[in-house]
Amino acid sequence: MKRILIAPINTMLFEEVMTFVRVVAPMRYDYVCHFYRKEDQYRSALAYVLLCLANKKIVGEISRGVNGKPYLQETDCQISISHTNGLVSVGISNENIGVDCEIESNIDEIIIDESFSKKEKIQVTKDDFLKVVFWTAKEAISKLYNEDWYSSPATELIYNNSELKDTVIQEVYLHPFVFLNGCICTASLSAEQPDFQVITEKELIEFFDSFSEFFSKN
């Protein structure tokens, strides 16, 4: 099972999201409030909400393991979290998983020069959008192994006939999902296709409403 929830940040349900996290996960709320910018607070809090939505229950606090890798003590699933400008994504799975999301415009020439191999750069010259596909794949691999594994020569990505592979770490399966002007990519050790689900504002509101009785008691 691989389930990826994606939420575009179009209209900010800031108060609803923050209230939910404050009530059900006070430690996460304190962590979120350490961010200076309101948008950063929102993205971090929304990631927690998506984890609850994916599990269809309140998941408890997010703990941190080695190198800050997030995990949930109250569920058996593995998780991965990513957010960027205007986009939040989380992944849950019954096996180790890495998830990353990014907007195409955030991948500049410095990133490409420092992290991409010669063969990857040639592919990008033929299809500019591959720069964000490759970057999210490298970051997803890094999160999968919980190490700084994304730069060349540790990875050597090839995109052919809509299939993304790493010719160096051949046991890793990569699944990109293009959304709006960005990409979400998963990395795992199984070929199972992830279930990518875009969450709407309406679905978030309905989820909060389902806990209205819980909120009234707290």
Rank of each mutant, 00 (worst) to 15 (best):
S115L: 06
S162K: 13
T155H: 05
D148Q: 09
E120I: 06
N161R: 12
E114M: 02
E147M: 05
Y159D: 12
S152N: 08
I122T: 12
I112V: 14
K119P: 00
S117T: 12
K121A: 07
S151Q: 14
T125C: 07
K143G: 01
S117H: 06
Y159I: 10
E114R: 10
F129S: 15
S152P: 00
D127H: 09
Y159K: 11
V132D: 11
E114H: 03
W149R: 07
P153L: 08
K121N: 10
D113N: 14
A137F: 03
T125K: 14
L144E: 04
N160I: 13
L130Y: 13
I158D: 08
F134V: 09
E114F: 01
A154N: 12
F129N: 12
D127S: 05
K126A: 11
L157F: 15
S115M: 07
K118G: 01
Y150D: 02
K119L: 12
Y145E: 05
Y150M: 09
S162D: 15
E147S: 07
D113G: 01
K126D: 12
N160L: 15
Q123A: 12
T155R: 04
S117P: 05
E139P: 05
K138L: 05
S151H: 10
L130K: 13
D127L: 06
F129R: 15
A137N: 02
A140N: 02
K126F: 06
Q123F: 09
I112D: 02
I141M: 05
A154F: 08
E156D: 15
T155D: 07
K143Q: 03
A154W: 01
K131V: 11
D127F: 06
A140Y: 02
S151A: 15
K121S: 11
E120P: 05
Y150K: 10
Y145K: 06
V132R: 10
L157R: 04
A154M: 13
N160S: 14
S151G: 02
D148I: 09
D128N: 15
E114K: 10
S115D: 01
I158A: 08
K118T: 12
I141G: 00
T125R: 13
W149H: 03
S142I: 01
S115Q: 04
N146G: 10
D113P: 00
T136K: 02
D113K: 14
D148H: 07
E114W: 01
Y159L: 14
T125M: 10
A154D: 09
I112R: 01
D148A: 07
D128G: 03
N160P: 00
N146R: 05
K138Q: 15
K119W: 04
N161A: 12
Y150R: 09
T125G: 01
L157S: 08
A154Q: 14
P153I: 10
N146Y: 03
S142W: 01
S142G: 10
S115N: 07
I112F: 01
V124G: 11
